[in-house]
Design a protein around this nucleic acid. Structure first.
Lengths: 242, 242
DNA sequence: CGAGCCGTTGAGGGGATTCAAGCTCAGTGG
DNA sequence: CCACTGAGCTTGAATCCCCTCAACGGCTCG
């Protein structure tokens, strides 16, 4: 893990600039703040980065900060009572994670970097102070909680329902939403796909191979792929039809 | 749907008494308020009741109130893109539903009464005013959002993972948490079980029959049953072991 | 009483798992 | 340089779990 105070990101500019110019600012928690607001907070926020497959939050721990994801993808993992690993959610650019720290509640899942991940670390105390002064922040926090709830339930209906092939198509669709530059998506390891879709890694592998044959996916190792969006939508529609 | 202003529930007492004596008050949203606080709000809150299988909130609608469940069980339903019905969550006594109304967001699911349900209807505006004055209310709201999120993800890991028999056991376990008086639990229709556990109603029926044979469940029609808690825990543990 | 809904149970087939073998590829050390 | 190793991916074959299709009984209600 690498720590860089945000206000040093560009030393030629005044400190506030880093936050003001933040690429995800309009989508992030503090997007609701004006420039004066930003002036008050930026010194407390630090930029961190995590390599792929490193743990960002650990289930059971009580955190003292929240994180806005600037780039990369993270996964929320927990274990079944039977002991199997299950991935219950993904989060990416501009998503807020670790909100439970505000309530001094323990994290419910391990949060692990899927790709290299850049975040802004925001101390709990800062959010709480702002919450008093700025009505908008509280509102924005609730909105994010509601979004996370919706995400979790959509995950259930799309990724844990129906035949394996359909679940896989929906996963690809979701990964597409996190695509970087030009249509290149991050493709999980087969075992992780299994943990997301509740299937064995062999089944996941077979399905990926099939998508490859059908021209929906073009693998670009390591762990990336290109999607034929047209064919993907068509394949998903085929399931709805019959 | 039946509407009864709360303050008339007992006309021999001053209005505030209804809220102050509310059986779920300490677990409900306004549990954080003191008696003075209650004095200010109770006239705005009304008690409603819904018969089993009636719709309380409709997906797509934008509500103007929140509801605290005083008794009964409700289910959150949505549809797969393929058109199948899926139940993504249950809520019961002292749970808060319709929080998205605060954000003027549409409901994401149909919320339907499973049993007869009694609720307190709380206008959005009331919560918003209190949110300004009472820090504790805002805090409590966030806590409830977080609880709902945790519920949704636990639902995923327990009720949509692994072999059908285990999923059914976990459902019974969850229903037990909503048990009324003495160990009598509400037992869904087989088709609804299917929508909860992503299986066909025939499979659900077979599994219930099996639990009956194993002495874990004793049916008490209509739509109720008694659970042998000891054997249930044993059966769940058996899956963890092997 | 017949109609309809709900629940149960059987028989057969299909889809996912299990078990197993072989492949590529990166890293390691001789 | 290359054999060696181990992790990840793919594919095959056999098995099993769950779905599909079907028939039937109990119950409520018009």
């Amino acid at each position: 893990m690498n720590v860089v105070p945000l206000y040093k990101l560009d030393e030629r500019h005044p400190q506030a600039l880093a936050c003001a110019k933040c690429a995800v600012r309009e989508h992030a928690l503090f997007g609701a703040l004006d420039h004066d607001g930003l002036d008050r907070i930026h010194t407390h926020i630090a930029s961190h980065e995590y390599a792929a497959d490193t743990v960002i939050l650990r289930a059971g721990d009580v955190g003292d900060s929240l994180f806005t994801i600037r780039s990369g993808i993270v996964r929320f993992e927990r274990s079944t009572e039977a002991g199997e690993r299950r991935i219950v959610r993904l989060a990416g650019r501009s998503d807020l994670i670790g909100q439970e720290s505000l309530l001094r509640l323990a994290h419910q899942d391990d949060v692990i970097a899927c790709t290299e991940v850049h975040v802004c670390r925001i101390p709990r105390s800062l959010v709480q102070e702002l919450g008093h002064a700025e009505e908008a922040i509280t509102q924005e926090l609730m909105r994010r909680w509601q979004t996370a709830l919706g995400e979790a339930q959509a995950w259930m209906t799309n990724l844990s329902t129906g035949p394996a092939a359909r679940r896989m198509l929906h996963l690809v669709e979701k990964l597409q939403a996190h695509a970087d530059g030009r249509g290149l998506i991050w493709l999980p390891r087969r075992e992780d796909m299994g943990a997301m879709l509740d299937m064995t890694f062999e089944t996941a592998s077979r399905l990926v191979s099939q998508l490859k044959r059908e021209g929906i996916l073009t693998l670009e190792p390591p762990r990336h792929a290109r999607v034929n969006a047209e064919r993907l939508r068509h394949a998903i529609a085929a399931f709805a039809a019959g």
